[in-house]
């Protein structure tokens, strides 16, 4: 509870620090919206030209895009900080964090919360609402639960990917681009339903970075379609895999941090 309070206090302070340069901050808020807006436009233009993709209608695609964006940018906003372990090690800021009676992870995340991403989340929500309307989704309690699960567990997968980046960045800042492929590539790829991809990509995003299980299954359920032909219960059980993925990455990151503490920089 106390940690969450610290989280919000930090957010408030970072906001204040951004507001020291109000014009720049507003521009950055806009640019975040424009950035995701550009991608949204791409989806809309694709729908305009191609109408549908396999079994998915235009509205479905928008909805997929919206859920993925909301999930991703919530994490980007609240937890992107973990991937900056490398620069923090270099600048020695990590030492300062270790000198405080709080978890290092908490502090690193608090240090780099990113309030600018809020507008991107809003664009994602807009896409979700638009897509839901076009696909005539009738909301039920179960569908709301599925959506919540998608966002929470999908978010945990994103966080797990961030953790991988963090581990890499402790070792060397330059190697991070490879992992970036998985994080941003995962987002780009999985804003479209998984069944359009060839086997290797399907396996990658099901068994390794399980976006298909955490986001695509529950979203298909919401849209009234069946992704893999599994029973409906799968839409509620499979997202839990995201929790497992997160836990594994969390443990690995803890090991990496212990390694840092015994080797120094």
């Amino acid at each position: 509870m106390d940690t969450i309070r610290l989280y919000f206090r930090s957010m408030k302070m970072l906001l204040r620090s951004h507001l020291q340069y109000p014009a720049s901050f507003i521009l950055q808020l806009c640019s975040q919206a424009v950035m995701l807006g550009g991608e949204l436009l791409a989806v809309l233009l694709i729908i305009d030209r191609f109408d549908s993709l396999n079994q998915w209608s235009g509205g479905d695609l928008l909805f997929f895009f919206g859920v993925m964006s909301v999930t991703f940018y919530i994490m980007e906003c609240f937890a992107r900080g973990v991937t900056s372990f490398g620069p923090l090690v270099q600048k020695g800021t990590l030492d300062i964090f270790l000198l405080r009676p709080r978890g290092v992870l908490t502090q690193v995340i608090c240090y780099q919360l990113d309030p600018r991403r809020l507008t991107a989340i809003l664009v994602g929500v807009a896409a979700m609402v638009m897509g839901g309307r076009q696909s005539n989704v009738t909301w039920t309690a179960l569908k709301a639960l599925a959506l919540a699960e998608a966002i929470v567990f999908g978010g945990l997968v994103v966080l797990g990917l961030f953790f991988i980046e963090a581990m890499f960045s402790v070792r060397s800042v330059k190697s991070i681009e490879v992992v970036n492929a998985l994080t941003y590539g995962g987002r780009s790829a999985c804003q479209y339903p998984i069944d359009i991809y060839p086997e290797p990509l399907k396996i990658l995003f099901t068994a390794v970075a399980p976006f298909a299980l955490t986001i695509h299954l529950p979203v298909s359920y919401i849209l009234g379609k069946n992704l893999f032909g599994w029973p409906d219960a799968a839409a509620f059980l499979c997202p839990l895999a995201g929790g497992a993925f997160f836990l594994i990455m969390y443990v690995l990151l803890q090991f990496a941090l212990r390694y840092y503490r015994s080797t120094g920089s």
């Binding site: 302070m13 204040r16 620090s17 951004h18 020291q20 600048k91 020695g92 030492d95 300062i96 000198l99």
Partner: peptide
């Protein structure tokens, strides 16, 4: 701990 060349306080606030 105080480091002469490293700041622990936040820069912009």
């Amino acid at each position: 701990v105080v480091f002469g060349q490293r700041m622990q306080l936040w820069w912009d606030v």
